[in-house]
């Protein structure tokens, strides 16, 4: 027990914060990850983070097992069956990235009724008995304008790059950006294009709208579009505004080059795929008997000027900046939601 505490403390100490007495009563508990999709770099990073953190947790004896399961076809009915299988296998908690916010509710309810803790994240479920770790996309949009207000107190014109039309996330981030503009009325959005979270689409869209725009001081984005915007603006021979980046490797690389060349400054925000590990620790905390609110919010991963080199060094080519969460982080998130 003592070494376990020490090891746990060491794990916590490694990444952030002080060691805590996390003598979890969960060493015989088994946690399963039910994941609906693994077909892009973000999901791959998410699974790798899960594997890395939970393997260590199992080795340290924090939990007995933490198996990951991904459905083959990204279908709600298939994932519902997967969850029912997990109930049968007697897992104590199910961490869930759901194919549908509602279509799994029946299976989730069955899991709850069987006494299983269900923690959903990223793709959350609406069933009240489950825990939800949601992303505050609105805040992600609002804080971009707040950052710009700090840099440019006198304000100015902004270009907004949106995501994929008709997707919930796009509406949320955009709503947050507009709320930010209301809060800092010295800014004005003079143009808005859809970049579909892809650099090439964003580049084309920005290049298309630029000739019709007055001078812009900032570009507010949704991630995956900052590099494309920079390319388009550079090609048009305009002065480079402050472009908010989205943690993609190509964006960070461009930022670093611009910084080295002329001291360019900006900020980068997105959701870290390692949020799966936050969900893992939240499940562990619930199993440990801690009081955890049903609804939690994921902190997003923000890269500031000072963190740029470190972030770029750890981000794989073509990937997304990532962070794995610790037990301590989870406790902070839980305490913050109380």
């Amino acid at each position: 027990m003592k070494t376990r505490t020490k090891l746990l403390g060491a794990v916590v100490l490694l990444s952030a914060g002080l060691p805590v007495a996390g003598t979890a009563d969960t060493s015989d508990k088994r946690i399963a990850l039910s994941n609906n999709y693994a077909g892009n770099s973000w999901r791959q990073a998410m699974l790798q983070s899960w594997d890395k953190v939970t393997k260590q947790a199992v080795a340290d004896g924090v939990v007995a097992a933490a198996d990951a399961f991904t459905t083959a076809e990204n279908q709600a009915t298939e994932q519902a069956a997967q969850i029912q299988n997990m109930i049968l296998e007697g897992y104590d908690a199910i961490v869930l990235n759901a194919a549908s916010p509602t279509a799994l509710n029946g299976a989730v309810k069955e899991a709850c009724d069987a006494g299983i803790v269900v923690v959903s994240f990223d793709g959350i479920v609406t069933e009240p008995c489950a825990y939800r770790i949601a992303v505050d996309f609105k805040e992600m949009g609002r804080m971009q304008v707040e950052y710009l207000a700090g840099r440019l107190p006198e304000g100015g014109n902004l270009l907004e790059i949106r995501g994929l039309a008709g997707v919930f996330v796009d509406d949320e981030i955009s709503a947050g950006i507009h709320a930010g503009v209301e809060q800092f009325p010295q800014f004005k959005i003079v143009g808005s294009v859809h970049g579909d979270w892809a650099q090439d689409v964003a580049q084309k869209a920005v290049a298309g709208i630029l000739p019709s725009l007055p001078d812009i001081v900032g570009v507010v984005t949704q991630g995956g579009d900052g590099y494309g915007a920079a390319q388009a603006i550079a090609a048009a021979g305009r002065e480079m505004p402050i472009i908010i980046m989205g943690n993609r490797q190509d964006e960070l690389k461009w930022w670093k080059e611009a910084r080295d060349a002329n001291g360019y400054e900006t900020v980068s925000v997105s959701i870290a795929p390692g949020v799966s590990t936050l969900a893992f620790w939240v499940a562990q905390q619930v199993l440990d008997g801690q009081k955890v609110p049903q609804d939690l919010t994921v902190p997003f991963l923000q890269i500031n000027q000072a963190d740029l080199d470190a972030a770029l060094a750890t981000t794989p080519e073509g990937g997304v900046a990532n962070v794995e969460y610790t037990l301590e982080d989870a406790k902070k998130v839980i305490a913050g939601a109380m």
Binding site: Q75, A80, S100, T102, A103, N105, G106, E127
Partner: peptide
């Protein structure tokens, strides 16, 4: 069984 629907629920 699922308690709610989704336009893609039964594609498979």
């Amino acid at each position: 069984l699922t308690t709610s629907a989704d336009a893609n629920i039964a594609l498979r």
